[in-house]
Design a protein around this nucleic acid. Structure first.
Ligand SMILES: [Mn+2]
Ligand SMILES: [Mn+2]
Ligand SMILES: [Zn+2]
Ligand SMILES: [Zn+2]
Lengths: 150, 150
DNA sequence: CCACTAGATAGGATAAATTCCTATAAAGGA
DNA sequence: TCCTTTATAGGAATTTATCCTATCTAGTGG
């Protein structure tokens, strides 16, 4: 039995090729990082991480690469506290963000997540061409919440 | 019968005094603008508007003033497309934002808006200290939607 | 009506995030 | 290996928001 031909998300090289992106060391490094597991990253964080192995990688490349991954549908972009955050979990879900430490967590979809989207579209948005919906809970995470009591 | 003693929202001077803010020409001008009706404004927009009558007003003053109004509970702050937006409608409600022209509209609260908050708090957020929840629908407004077809 | 003081303002410096520009480098196909 | 297209690094430019400070003033009390 041979390996399946379908490129796996765990094979960054194949993933890039599948989406018509040239396989460069920088792009590969970013892919290996952000697709290793579901995560929320900013360009700055990616840059800091990648620089450990690619000291010369530029912010520009990081921005371009993340933007391309988004264009391919491999990442979703949202904003929190004025920063652009890229999410490698591309299925629809809500977030909670800690106002103090910046931690962002995924919220499990409600039981009827998919139906919710169609059912709960507000009447006023009928004439709109809605592309997406974003819900963020703001507050203090358990750690910061307990610290603030001290 | 005399005028009621309760300061009205339509009397910016009284509104400022009520909240312990000195009545300066700049502050008054900002108050007259943002409290004249429900609106969504950025510091830049407020600055441009106020400058028509107060050519020397600084962005710093605008930022400070809007921040103070927020601290008083007279404005709510949220973000969209990386910009800070101040909302003079302080009751809880969702928004829709046009990705092309930037228009922001208020969405009528769902029938059980208040109960929704307690009922729908995700289980995962039990250990959190939630301060608020933001929901934004992104897409194209009717105008931009029809233009994009042409 | 005047003087005093806490608070407000203008303007400039600073900071941070993102985009733009361009010459050079390199991936991948011929 | 050569060639064309695309990617990259680095820096400039833009944008937004905050910080700093000297000056000014609203409101208070004399
Ligand atoms: Mn997520
Ligand atoms: Mn609103
Ligand atoms: Zn936290
Ligand atoms: Zn529009």
């Amino acid at each position: 039995m041979r390996k399946p031909a379908t490129p796996s998300n765990h094979n960054p090289t194949a993933l890039l090729r599948t989406h018509g992106l040239r396989v460069t060391p920088q792009r590969l490094a970013v892919a290996e990082l952000v697709f290793s597991k579901p995560m929320h990253v900013t360009a700055r964080i990616v840059h800091e991480q990648i620089r450990q192995n690619h000291p010369a990688i530029s912010m520009n490349t990081v921005y371009l690469t993340l933007g391309q991954f988004e264009a391919c549908g491999l990442l979703k972009r949202f904003e929190v506290h004025g920063n652009i955050v890229f999410d490698s979990n591309t299925s629809p879900h809500d977030h909670a963000c800690c106002n103090r430490c910046g931690t962002i967590i995924d919220l499990d979809s409600s039981p009827s997540a998919s139906s919710k989207h169609t059912v709960q579209l507000p009447t006023q948005l009928k004439p709109w061409q809605i592309e997406g919906e974003r819900r963020i809970w703001m507050g203090l995470c358990p750690d910061c919440s307990s610290e603030s009591v001290l």
